[in-house]
């Protein structure tokens, strides 16, 4: 029952002397500010010196210039890596979501033998370091003499994102959906139609959440992309090779752009996806 009183939890009349309370409050805000400063310091420095008019992204700040952004956009290899990253992220996330959804549907709606074991197996890659997953795949690919490419990177990214997608979608398949599916079946829909026309749309918020989360994971993933690619590389790998040249405002510029893009995606997601699902 929604009593007006229940929303007012902070109204508790505590006896603490107001001086002590104010001190505690001031300390809280100071702590908050300090940790925020720590969290934002490197990002602020990164963005600021991406506009550096000079060759070194460290103080003093010589003046405002967009030259490093120009050189980022003029860098063919960097732009190719960006495209590769997008391609691998979208494709591997799509496959992860599809396989994850199908598996979640089967395990949540049908009685299959050893389903706990199957769930465990599907989740297992989450508990293993990416480095180990990459090494194992690399060893097998080498043994089978499969050449490394964006395809192999994509395979690796599905391995790490499939457990994530499966877990998110499986968790959202509540029992309260069962009767809606039964009703659809009762009205003559086949199993596959029920899945495509009823279950998938009902679960769309969590499927989309899983999809975008995997995109960000794949987009930012380094070690698998590094070990399993050869000539065509993804953006983190390309940035990595740029780091060899040491401190360079161009790295700042590409880093700031990635940050900006992520923030835009985040804001769009917040407004489009979570904003909607929060209102019942």
């Amino acid at each position: 029952m929604a009593q007006p009183g229940e929303t007012q939890a902070t109204d508790i009349a505590f006896p603490a002397g107001s001086a002590r309370r104010m001190l505690a409050s001031a300390l809280s805000w100071f702590y908050l500010a300090a940790v925020y400063a720590f969290i934002f310091l490197p990002v602020a420095v990164l963005v600021l010196f991406s506009f550096q008019d000079g060759r070194l992204p460290v103080p003093p700040f010589n003046g405002f210039s967009l030259q490093w952004y120009e050189s980022v956009f003029a860098d063919r290899k960097l732009m190719a890596a960006l495209a590769n990253s997008l391609m691998v992220a979208v494709a591997s996330s799509f496959v992860s979501c599809l396989l994850g959804f199908l598996a979640a549907y089967a395990l949540a709606r049908y009685r299959l033998p050893a389903s706990a074991l199957q769930r465990g197996l599907l989740i297992a890659p989450m508990t293993v370091s990416y480095l180990i997953i990459a090494l194992g795949l690399l060893a097998v690919l080498n043994a089978l003499q499969v050449p490394l490419s964006l395809w192999t990177v994509g395979i690796g990214h599905v391995v790490i994102n499939l457990p994530l997608c499966f877990a998110i979608i499986y968790a959202s398949m509540g029992d309260h959906h069962v009767n809606i599916e039964r009703a659809a079946r009762d009205l003559g829909a086949s199993d596959v139609k029920v899945m495509a026309l009823v279950t998938a749309p009902m679960l769309m918020p969590s499927i989309m959440a899983a999809f975008f989360l995997s995109i960000t994971f794949s987009w930012d993933e380094f070690i698998i992309a590094f070990l399993l690619s050869r000539f065509d590389v993804t953006l983190p790998v390309e940035i990595w090779s740029m780091l060899r040249s040491g401190l360079n405002p161009k790295t700042n510029a590409i880093g700031s752009l990635v940050f900006l893009a992520s923030v835009v995606v985040l804001v769009v997601l917040e407004l489009a996806l979570f904003g909607r699902s929060r209102k019942p």
């Binding site: 969290i39 934002f40 490197p42 990002v43 420095v45 990164l46 960000t216 930012d220 380094f222 953006l235 983190p236 940035i239 990595w240 780091l243 790295t251 700042n252 590409i254 880093g255 990635v258 940050f259 992520s262 923030v263 985040l266």
Partner: peptide, 13 residues
């Protein structure tokens, strides 16, 4: 928020 910068770039920064 800074969670969403590139992991490589974050260390670099």
């Amino acid at each position: 928020l800074p969670f969403w910068t590139s992991y490589v770039v974050r260390s670099y920064s």
